[in-house]
Amino acid sequence: MKKQTPLGRLLSIYSVLFFIFLYAPVILIVIYSFNSNPINIMIWDGFTLDWYRSVFGLETSLADSSSYIDSTDQLLNALLNSLIVAGSATIIATFLGTSTAVALARYRFKLHSFYRLLLFVPMVMPDIVLGIALLIFFVGAGFTLGNSTIIIGHCTFLTSYVFIVVSARLAGMNPLTESASADLGANEWQTFRRVTLPLILPGVIGGALLSFIISMDDLVITYFISGVDSTTLPVFILGMIRRGIKPEINAIATLMLLFSVVIASAGIYFKSKNTSTP
């Protein structure tokens, strides 16, 4: 298994190629988002920030004909919808997932395995199936498709993710701290509020961050249950890609990647804090 052997060297080269395969396509987008060639966006023509300016609706040096974004308002509206949906869904799912995780970790009752199943299934359910089921349900029950239906739809599976993350945190916790709190005269609520919650907080924050990311990125479920004017960012970008490749998409994609990296770093920072405090 040492690197000196020819096989080991081959393996190293292969693995490095693997990571290049993983990152090169994404890096390509970032590089070409600064390309000033408006006709063929894959032929390098010079450095420009015009696509970014165009995305933000600023004045550019582009001729009017080469400016492609239909309207910056639509893009900003989609971004705003995404943030509203992800924010609300995260709050609700964090609340639901955490309470269920605490209940399952701290109480013994008959329906234990039923609840485990109930929270496992939404996570493995292919998203198109869940999207379709929700669409039939919302239309049948007379909901107007819009931000509220997207929020509900996202919560059905985000709850499971929060549940998993918080459960892992609870499993690594010493249950005696809670018994001690009870022995000292605290009631259930006080124990939860003063002992359990502070201890599981890193898990709760981690679960919330994960939910936020997944919700911001969800395409398939949102695609089916979003209304006419409740397009989220991924759905908007899918529409743009299908209408044709425009240089502005590179700029939007780069901004989204930047956003993801920031959130991911925050998540990993919390995770490292999570493990360093036993």
């Binding site: 993983l22 987008i29 970008i237 890609i241 993801s260 991911a264």
Partner: peptide, 24 residues
């Protein structure tokens, strides 16, 4: 490096392949 793509938007990652694979 393996977990980072989880955080990056799926549409964006697929879009990268449109840039690579299309005729031009």
């Amino acid at each position: 490096l393996m977990t980072l793509p989880f955080f990056a938007s799926m549409v964006v990652r697929l879009y990268a392949w449109v840039l690579i694979l299309r005729n031009s």
